[in-house]
Amino acid sequence: MIGFGIEFVPMDLYWRTTYYSIQAERLGYDNIWITDHFNNRNVYVSLSAIANYTERIKIGPGVTNPYLVHPVMTAQSVASLNEVAPGRVVCGIGAGDRTTLDMVGVEMKSPLRTVREAVEVIRRQIAREKEGYEGSVFRTSPGARFNFRMQGRIPIYVGAQGPRMLQLAGAIGDGALINASHPEDVREAVSYIRRGAEEAGRQMDEIDVTAYTSFSIAEDEKSARKAVVPVVAYIVAGSPPSVLEKHDISPKVADRIRGDLAERRWGEAFGAVDSGMIDVFAVSGTPDQCVEKIDGLFETGITQFVTGSPLGPNVRFSIALFGREVFPHFKEPA
């Protein structure tokens, strides 16, 4: 069973994100993921609006982080959202983005332990466990539980990029959100998730292995690739040397892009993004090209493909194009 998700960054007015969400549900998407950054609109306000105007599609943060939001608050938020959209809520959580955390003076300490404990706290809170929790990062007292009962369960997806976080996702996640777009990177990520699952005595079919890609589709290849350039610039700037080296991307060029982005020299930063970088860090192109690339990604063992931002040069048109030209290759019409 394969699924399709779509990511929205709530930079735009809530009603536009909700409009696109209704469109995505109608076309047959299975999941809507809303990013969580302090400098955008609040993820749960966005999700709540979407919950009110959709009926079937699963919704959740993709991803929140336990450094800016304590896991008891994440548990409260997703449990409350589950009242609005019963049985449709999922929760994506990861270590977050070091650059964004730096901006508000928060240090990303012990990310593996922090995410592991956060997931444990969220699960305990949702289950209204009477016992407290004594971790090395988080602690809750025996009485610290909801005054309300939540029906059903909320699958937790662990967002991951590095080997150890991917293994953790395999060990504890109901799903794993792989932050990659290139088949080689995704294949490697799936192998780490499998290793983590096996070490924890789990089967891979217990885990919704999700490729969370930068995505852009258009009728013509040039427009699709042009639209994804800014996103790729940020990915190159944020990639560790090992990732750059693996894909033959010069660290000097990445440094330059990083500097240009920091100084808001958009023309220079985006102008330094070349065709190879786009191929490595994004899934983009015409519908036929996207079908081929998505097919290749499903062959790596993923079970969900997420079309992440920017989606295309025109969001509404690109969602419609995806629904019309790509979905029929993978699933029955909605």
Partner: peptide
């Protein structure tokens, strides 16, 4: 666009 009008549009779109 006032939120009430935006919600009316979403109502019809839904």
């Amino acid at each position: 666009v006032p939120s009430s009008l935006a919600k009316t549009i979403l109502y019809y779109w839904q």
